[in-house]
Structure formats: structure tokens, C-alpha cells
Amino acid sequence: MGTGAVGNSYEDECRQSLAEEQAKSLAATNDWEHVDREQVHRDWDVLYREITAFLAGGSLPGDQQIQELVRRHFDIVSRFYLPSREAYVGMSLFYAEDEAMRAFHDSYHPGMVEFLGAAIKVFAEQGNGFAPRAGAETSA
């Protein structure tokens, strides 16, 4: 998505979008009370085990089968709220930057966080299914 100052600026935008969109969703849904969290965790466990098998087999983040798995990840995330492209990339940054989230994801495979982050960025670049970014202008 970019390097240097442009990449950092974009990443900051993604972090901010994640924080704003999650806060708004949490407030509107009484802390996501509509989500069956046990089912979500079961679904993520199955998904991460599938991703691990492909990662261990040498798949690349942009491979079609990986992108199909990322679509499933996005669909699970969307049970909470429909993120913008930036918020979804922000989630991958959160996975990498939060110690507990990194440990959780990397417990499946030592390279899971980086691999999933790269795959999410590829998915985001394709742009299908995302909510408009909060505050973004829309055209009629």
C-alpha cells in the first residue's frame, strides 16, 4: 500500500478508521450484544487452522485460495459491523501491534500475523464489500 511517509500516513488513517468505526458500532449495539462470540471464536479457529495449512504449504497472500479464506475472515468480522477498507486494514495493523493479538494469531503459526496482514491488504486493494469510510464523501 506504500512505503515511507505515505505508507505511515495511510496506516495512521487505517488505525484511526478502525478506532472510530469500532467505537461507533460498540455504542450502537450495546457492545456487540448481537454477536454470538462463542461461534465467532469457533469459526475463527477453523479458519486460522485452514490458513495455517496453506501458509505451511508455501501459499502466498494473493493466491486465490488465500483470498477466499480472507473473504471468510471479512465475513466473520462483518458479524460485528461492516468495516470500511481502511478499518479492515487497521485491524491487520492491530493484530501486529497489540501484543496479545499477535501472540494469539502467531500461536497458529509463527508467521500468521504478517501473512494475514499481507493477505488482508491484498483483499482491501480489491475493494469488494466494504462500507464507505466514516466521513468519506459519496457520489450520487
Rank of each mutant, 00 (worst) to 15 (best):
F115I: 06
R42Q: 15
F80A: 14
R85S: 02
N30G: 08
L26P: 02
A103V: 01
F115R: 06
E13G: 05
E38H: 09
T52F: 10
V77S: 09
E125N: 01
E20F: 05
N30L: 03
D12P: 01
F74A: 06
V113N: 05
G57D: 14
D36L: 07
G135T: 01
E86M: 14
Q67Y: 07
K24C: 13
L116K: 01
P132I: 06
N30T: 12
R42H: 08
G90W: 07
M91N: 09
E86I: 01
E114M: 10
V35W: 02
V70N: 10
F54M: 12
G7A: 08
D36T: 11
G127Q: 05
S78E: 01
D98G: 03
R71Q: 10
Y108W: 06
W44T: 00
Q16K: 15
P132C: 06
D75Y: 05
A5T: 11
H105Q: 01
F80K: 13
S92N: 02
Q67V: 08
N128S: 06
Y88N: 01
K121P: 00
H105E: 03
D12Q: 14
Y10Q: 12
M112Q: 12
G62I: 00
I120G: 04
A19L: 13
L60D: 11
E125F: 00
S17I: 03
A5M: 10
R49D: 14
S25Y: 07
F80H: 06
A103D: 09
T29A: 07
L18I: 08
V40G: 05
A87K: 03
G90E: 11
A56Y: 03
F104N: 04
A56Q: 10
G127F: 02
C14H: 04
G2M: 13
A131W: 05
Q67H: 14
S139F: 09
E86R: 15
W44C: 10
E50M: 13
F130A: 05
L26R: 15
V122K: 00
I120T: 04
I51E: 13
Y108C: 04
Y95R: 08
V113G: 10
A19W: 02
D31L: 09
P61F: 11
E11R: 15
S139Q: 08
L82H: 13
Y81W: 15
F94I: 01
E86N: 10
E50G: 07
W32H: 05
F115N: 07
H105D: 06
F74C: 06
E38L: 14
E33C: 07
E13I: 08
R133G: 03
E21D: 13
A53Y: 04
R42L: 12
E114V: 09
W32F: 15
R49V: 00
Y81K: 08
Q64Y: 12
E68F: 14
V77E: 14
F123S: 04
D31S: 11
E86C: 09
E114A: 15
A134Y: 03
E11N: 15
E50A: 12
A87M: 10
G7P: 11
N8F: 07
Q16C: 11
L82M: 13
R133I: 04
E20R: 05
N128R: 07
Y48I: 00
H34C: 09
A23T: 08
H41Y: 15
A124R: 11
P110N: 04
M101C: 13
S25T: 03
R42N: 13
Y95I: 02
E114P: 01
E137F: 06
C14M: 14
Y10A: 09
P83Y: 02
H73Q: 06
G117V: 00
